[in-house]
Design a protein around this nucleic acid. Structure first.
Lengths: 151, 151
DNA sequence: TAGACAAAGGTCAGGAAAGGTCAAAGAAAA
DNA sequence: TTTTCTTTGACCTTTCCTGACCTTTGTCTA
């Protein structure tokens, strides 16, 4: 079995026994598995991404750590579906339409809808080149909805 | 646990028991935790900034003090303050910290916090050049918080 | 009252302890 | 064989802690 999988399993077990939260130290984990520290980054980057339903925070410096949080997804699958269904590009109008749909399906509250729309409005993305804006908007929208779906 | 965190917690408790205001003396705090006085500055500079929702005043000379005030205004006002206080750049960790602050001040719901964080996560901004990411994140965060504040 | 001294808090730079990045080499899969 | 995934190591950035030195403010005395 590959080292990366072994490490990933280990983290997975930490998550289970830790109620969905695992806090590791890069160096000591690397020592435990006799690999270089950067391999830990690799494992996390390839197996504990937001797309996989995880959230990772880290802190550098003395006493630093890497915290991996499993985002529990319930029957909010519809939101996940919606998020996954968003294409590579999303206009502001489409975002508004989609948001209204989610709103009227009661998958979002009024405030959440507002927040979402503002976050990916042309205003927020003003400094982004217009050709990239819709792509970025799609990414933001997708990520936000996935995030909230698994909250 | 790190000294800085311990000290930060201590101040946090002073704030809670003091109705949002904590007044400390740099030297005696340093003595209590057996560290150098400048560490107190470090803790305050890194954890009780306006971005984190605090205001700091100090007075030198005999009878000097450092006063830390937790900003607990009317909720919308505080949200606006927070939005305005965001600098030109915002790291993912800072976004997480600020969101937690807003969350624990009950200015956001759990879901709103999650949505906000996801919307400006590195995941959502993956396609943005890294040099621009923190700037854009700041813009998104600011816009979203202002949007929700004035909703 | 001016000046000296004491009692605060402030700044800054440096070393150490993390974690992060990137590209190249190696291995496995297609 | 070509492509994709894994592993490694050199180098980078961030955070923490400390200590030397600076500035401001209060007080006491000549």
């Amino acid at each position: 079995m590959k080292m990366s999988d072994i490490i990933a399993d280990f983290i997975g077990e930490m998550l289970s026994s830790g109620g969905g939260v695992a806090e590791v130290q890069r160096k000591s984990l690397a020592d435990r598995f006799s690999c270089v520290p950067s391999q830990i980054n690799y494992v996390i980057e390839t197996r504990f991404t937001p797309e996989h339903g995880y959230l990772v925070e880290s802190q550098r410096g003395g006493g630093g750590y890497i915290r991996i949080v499993r985002l529990m997804d319930d029957k909010q699958r519809t939101l996940l579906e919606a998020a996954r269904g968003i294409g590579g590009r999303l206009t502001q109008n489409d975002a508004a339409r989609l948001t209204r749909a989610l709103l009227s399906a009661e998958l979002l509250t009024q405030r959440e809808a507002q927040l979402l729309l503002s976050a990916c409005s042309d205003g927020a993305l003003a400094e982004v080149d217009k050709t990239d804006r819709d792509r970025l908007r799609a990414a933001i929208f997708r990520c936000a909805v996935m995030g909230i779906a698994t909250a």
